[in-house]
Write a protein that binds this DNA or RNA. Structure first.
Lengths: 228, 228
DNA sequence: TTAGACAAGATAATCGATTTTTTAATCTAC
DNA sequence: GTAGATTAAAAAATCGATTATCTTGTCTAA
């Protein structure tokens, strides 16, 4: 028997350790808005919540702080970063620049395997949407779709930054309840993005991507403003 | 008495903890090339080297892994990331895009305080160069200069990514011994960058920045090729 | 020979307890 | 009353020891 099934999607292919498990779970919960922004984390409570000892928990918290999903202060532990309009604008602006760049490069580099992956990812996403999002399913497939879209951009660092920005952006977008109406419009764009990618129309694809991020930004902003 | 002196330049204003101290030191050493690329880190040896216990050491290693200066694998600890031509190209390319963008924005936003800071940073850097680099002095002032140059770009995330890319780039640039000849040429450009920034000539400044990064890239590439 | 099983040693990860520092509450002097 | 000192409780950071996993070398059976 071998360990071919990755049990964790942590930093790299880290599997199995308590630290990586709690990292994954905490990351999901932070991105999914299950903590209050600005909140101070009570480490002992987290120990219970994630069923893990102190050492692996602290290691996970340290990683998340370095990743930007937590802030760590002097000798007073960890807290969930505050949200701000300025930061949301910053994140959205950066997404525009970086995902636009990545998409153009991906369209230039992507091979036919990419085309297949893209179609598959879009299909899975659409199907999940019909069944109306049981749990985190749609979120995961959505992330996966955007990841696939830019995957062959040729820059490991660009992909890394984009991923990080997505996590940060989702802290805003996923405030409050779901909005199926707007989602439909955004889902429409996902398919148009695939179309344009397959046609290798980099210019139009980038414009659509800009629009897509703009629309998502408006959703996120609304959520943020309602949430305050 | 208060604690107005920051004792550490860690992730945020983290001061005092053993973890943050060892994080800073390890980061310096990794960026400065005092570890062999690809090397597996012997945690017990690090404990002695940095005079610190296992827990804070592991926390620092976890942070560095999330930051990208280490890689962490399954259940077999930490290692220093390998170097590769492809990655160097990627990093340099990303620096071109991001620092160019940041510089343009900084020139648009920077106030007169920035101008003063910039002149000061350039002066300190030049002076350190004359006294011929005692220890890490020049490196630190160099980092500081580039940081100051883009500081008022208005994007926290852009600054963060640039910082990260600098650390990665320096893993290549700082292989092997110093090269005073080329450094002189690069130092020249630092002053021209200040000139153009003060004149608010964004276009020329960006071109010069591109050239500056290109030249640095050539140095780094040479080092890398000699180092293999 | 050589692939696979096994055991011993080394290393990584985790635990439980201790030390240090912060926080909050109370007290005291003005 | 209020600023500052004092101290008890809480929380963070760290330590020392334990447990789990990997690695290496040796052996055995085909």
């Amino acid at each position: 028997m071998n360990n071919s099934l990755p049990k964790s999607a942590g930093p790299a292919g880290l599997a199995g350790t308590a630290s990586s498990r709690v990292f994954d779970n905490l990351r999901k919960d932070l991105v999914g808005g299950r903590f209050v922004a600005g909140e101070k984390l009570a480490i002992n409570a987290l120990k219970d919540r994630y069923q893990v000892g102190l050492s692996p928990l602290r290691e996970a918290l340290n990683k998340l702080a370095a990743y930007g999903l937590l802030v760590q202060e002097n000798q007073r532990g960890f807290r969930v970063p505050k949200l701000s309009r300025d930061e949301l604008d910053d994140i959205a602006q950066m997404r525009l620049e970086m995902e636009g760049m990545a998409l153009e490069r991906a369209i230039a580099n992507g091979d036919s395997l990419w085309e297949a992956d893209l179609l598959a990812a879009a299909h899975r996403l659409k199907r999940a949407d019909i069944t109306l999002d049981k749990g985190e399913e749609w979120e995961h497939l959505h992330t996966q779709f955007h990841r696939t879209l830019v995957a062959p951009c040729g820059s490991v660092w660009l992909l890394r930054f984009i991923e990080q920005l997505h996590d940060q952006f989702d802290r805003y977008r996923r405030l409050g309840p779901k909005m199926p109406t707007i989602r439909q419009e955004l889902d429409e764009q996902h398919h148009q993005l695939v179309e344009l990618a397959l046609q290798r129309d980099a210019k139009m694809a980038r414009e659509l991507m800009d629009d897509h991020i703009h629309k998502s930004y408006e959703v996120a902003l609304k959520r943020y403003q309602e949430h305050v």
